[in-house]
Design a protein around this nucleic acid. Structure first.
Lengths: 134, 134
DNA sequence: CTGACTGCAAACGTTTTGCACGGTA
DNA sequence: TACCGTGCAAAACGTTTGCAGTCAG
């Protein structure tokens, strides 16, 4: 993926910090502010939390980063992708994407209620494969 | 509903403040900390936010109150009830319960993945009936 | 060259904590 | 009576803001 182009497309100036943020989100899939901060400190020993907050918020506003709110945990952030659900392991904390046809779900709901859905958020909390096999 | 019995059943001492909290949650369905505080101030002019936080947290721990995390808004709290989804109107902010067979959804997911679901959270953001008709 | 971005420090709003007092069981 | 809950004030926490210096375009 070309992070420079991505940033430019969304009218954000291309800075090393921003490239790194997008890069880490892409590599890790889901990260909260703290883990992002820890990882970025390696490349940018003097990076500040304020910079990370400002950039994440800018990216959310440009709608190419999404926030995932999780019960009892801090929000994590991910590069926007097609509708999907999340699984959160209550044992190891791992967060995974799950292929899931939210489209069908949304159509079903739309036809049975008078609510016009714009966005759907679906999270499963439970035990992941790895933890279950222990 | 007998709030005294409910509190006793969960090993919480029965205090007027706690009865009022449960009562308001029951009446309003979903409330955030601030609205709860405002309403409780009427009955208890000297109630403190700390008391509300402590009690809500205790009730969440006893699993008879649930927290609903909402994008761009403060969490709301509700008395625990059977699995259901939430609709959140992005226009007027109203939060409603939606009858929804999460059971079927969960079975479907369980059979197609190796994730053992304990809890499902499903939120639809969009435009409610009332706002749509304007 | 200009406006936007960074990093620092301070401010802010929310939630938690410690403690003395009061109420429940 | 013993313990738990309340309310107050202070602390802790996460996030945002203002600003001076720096960098991307």
């Amino acid at each position: 993926m070309n992070y420079t182009k991505l940033l430019k497309d969304y009218n954000l100036k291309v800075t090393p910090q921003r490239i790194a943020i997008v890069d880490e989100l892409h590599k890790h899939g889901h990260m909260n502010i703290d883990s992002l901060y820890q990882v970025l400190l390696v490349k940018f020993p003097s990076i500040s939390l304020a910079t990370i907050y400002k950039n994440i918020n800018a990216m959310i506003e440009k709608v190419f980063v999404d926030e995932v709110k999780i019960e009892h945990k801090k929000s994590v952030f991910e590069l926007s992708k097609k509708d999907h659900a999340h699984t959160i392991c209550s044992s190891c904390g791992a967060i995974e994407d799950m292929d899931f046809s939210l489209q069908n779900l949304m159509k079903e709901v739309a036809s049975s209620s008078s609510f016009e859905i714009e966005k759907t958020s679906l999270c499963f909390t439970g035990i992941c494969k790895t933890c279950a096999s222990k």
